[in-house]
Amino acid sequence: MLLPKFDFHEPTSVDEACEILATFGPKAKVLAGGTDLMVNLKKKILAPENLVCLSRIDSLHGIVEEKDQIVIGGRYTVAELTVDPLVEKKLGALRSGARALGSPLVRNRATIAGNIGSARPAADLPPSLIAYGATVILVSSQGKREVPLGDFFKGPGFTELRPEEVLTEVRVPVPTAGQAPATSTWACARPRIATWSMWPPILPWTRRTGPSKPHGLSWGRWARHPCGPAGPKRHWLVRSRTRRSFSRPEKRPARTASPLMTSGAQPAIARPWWGF
């Protein structure tokens, strides 16, 4: 499989990358890990005239805890997420998603920004990140903006990201006491779905946990159930009052959540697969 011809740019800073993107606009594509973009180039789905590779921008690589947020650089690889002690300790659901992504060889190249920015329906990281209430920082030569990940996706392959912007970091609020992240595959209920990378992480608030109410989402006995490919916008969010029995989601999460999930899914896509 031959790659189409393109010019290759390797900026060493975010500013330089933004300048290049501002110059070429939609004729340029950002190359992060390449596990998705390279395949699309080979299959002739995309044919940009310019590729802007982020691999020499050191400031995009790293993870740091800042106050009540964990800031993950866009170039942080999925393999690094699976072994990072900070992720293991505080963002267990994200780690589960990362461990489920592709093969070890793909995880070694794939980046968090690429997994989000490509907006593939079966992406493994966004569901848990939406559950955590994560935001993404989009930088262009005009400035930077912060977008909640729940609003970032517009449809398969379509996002808030403009052609001249770079997704530089993902900010994840650290779960507080009383928040219980959990992930679940639908393998429990429908084995066929498991092959479809369905990851509905569940992040319920079992008690009123004080003032934290990130991005207007639920609290008290409300829960967030972002889900993988289950509708045209692919990451929908169900805000539903849960039963008391749901207060311990780590116990059979798929079973307790399934009625809520199915009622919120888009029937046109979800029902033939789920069989409900």
Binding site: F8, E10, G34, T35, M38, V39, C53, S55, A79, P104, L105, V106, N108, R109
Partner: peptide, 13 residues
């Protein structure tokens, strides 16, 4: 030091 799919890496990278 990291195993990768070389088909997904450009020579220039």
């Amino acid at each position: 030091g990291i195993p990768v799919n070389s088909c997904l890496v450009l020579a220039v990278q």
